[in-house]
């Protein structure tokens, strides 16, 4: 009987616990080293890279992206198989544990910016908003580097 009561109590308090911690979660996300490459016109998709760090002590889940620059921004993963063939696919949700950093970097995950609404011009920046499962958002200004850039400052 006692154990059932405890279980019921846990079941009742769990959703509240989750909601509170998740709000705290998205607020503790730090985005660093963001960069992207200039585009040629708008017909080709762009890509942006960054480190997304969960500086809090609760799990966070990145669910999507939003930007006025592109009609369809999505996180994609490039993978290369043992035959050396590369392919790209949408990642879906990304869980980031406390203290962990998820790197969007060339050859791994990237923010794929499909349906560009304007060309990505070298030297400019654009706002990119990261959306989290708790409704929290983090917006970062992404610098646009040259088309042949290899990193945030190289």
């Amino acid at each position: 009987m006692k154990s059932i009561l405890i279980a019921m109590l846990m079941a009742m308090t769990l959703p509240f616990g989750l909601a509170t911690s998740a709000r705290a979660g998205a607020g503790d996300v730090v985005v660093e080293n963001a960069w992207s490459r200039a585009s040629i016109g708008t017909s080709r998709p762009g890509a942006a890279y960054m480190d997304i760090r969960n500086a809090g002590d609760e799990n966070v889940t990145l669910t999507g992206l939003r930007t006025d620059l592109a009609g369809m921004p999505e996180i994609h993963l490039t993978s290369t198989n043992e035959q050396g063939v590369s392919s790209m696919s949408p990642v879906g949700e990304i869980a980031i544990a406390p203290g962990e950093t998820v790197a969007l970097a060339p050859g791994g995950m990237h923010a794929m910016l499909m349906q560009l609404r304007r060309p990505m011009e070298e030297g400019e920046t654009f706002p990119l908003t990261l959306l989290f499962s708790d409704g929290g958002e983090v917006t970062v200004e992404v610098p646009i580097r040259g088309i042949a850039a290899r990193g945030p400052d190289d």
Partner: peptide
């Protein structure tokens, strides 16, 4: 291919380097 946002510019930039 030139509509490739990740691998191809990375490869071209690597080769340029």
């Amino acid at each position: 291919f030139t509509h490739c946002p990740d691998v191809c510019p990375t490869t071209l930039a690597d080769i340029s380097d």
